[in-house]
Design a protein around this nucleic acid. Structure first.
Lengths: 120, 120
DNA sequence: AGATTGTTTCCATATTTATAGAATAGTGGA
DNA sequence: TCCACTATTCTATAAATATGGAAACAATCT
């Protein structure tokens, strides 16, 4: 079983460009996107994109495969779920009642609880 | 409704000392812990602890209140939940099927799925 | 082989973040 | 008021991260 430091995973998402790449790949789904398209979509220099994708891959949040001359990136589902699980379990372990996971399980309404603080 | 940048929140957790503080406060629960106890528990210089708690508070993950000469820190539940929700909803929005939130809602067995990759 | 396209690595530079000692500020007790 | 205690802010220094141009590497096509 591989283990990845959660600090590494959080760091990977702790930069605007990397978070943007991750979100973009989330939307792209299993088909993924190649480096060039990501770079032009996000207006990043090729070397800069490479720097960030490497970091995300290292953190286990995305993965790369070569397809001809292209390198196609996509979300690493297992790694992503591991991060979510870490956050939720760490929370649970301390105080299950505080985090209210039942909210995450609901039919959908729970995700849009109107009074809750949202990140943006 | 306050909004906090998710990058800021991820950054807050993207450092070993800050993650340690957060975890410690999670375990401490609503009663929280004062700065000195946190510092000695984690073997951090006072000024260093202050640097990190400030960051966590700014990210909306912990909050401070004064109690006599002490400053007591505790987890900011709302902010923490907002971060979890951001991660899970962002994920969902892209590909609900990939993340399998049903796992997070289960009775507990799901959180300990044996084959899954874990962060450490 | 040579040319073309796509991507990464190397490099130098700039910026941000981290650390801890020393000084400062707030609180409560003698 | 003066002193002890707690914690933060200031300051200087050290370390880690970010950026983009240029060179190198990889794959495909003619």
């Amino acid at each position: 079983m591989e283990t990845i430091s959660p600090v590494e995973s959080f760091s990977a998402l702790a930069h605007p460009h990397r978070l943007a790449v991750f979100r973009l790949l989330m939307r792209a789904g299993p088909a993924g996107m190649n480096a060039g398209d990501i770079a032009s979509e996000l207006e990043l220099a090729p070397s800069s994109l490479s720097f960030h994708t490497r970091w995300l891959a290292q953190a286990g949040l995305i993965e790369a495969r070569r397809d001809g001359r292209h390198v196609v990136y996509r979300v690493n589902v297992e790694g992503t779920r591991a991060l979510i699980r870490y956050l939720t379990e760490d929370c649970c372990a301390g105080h299950p009642d505080l985090c209210g996971f039942s909210d995450l399980a609901g039919a959908g309404e729970s995700c849009a609880a109107p009074s809750a603080r949202r990140l943006a």
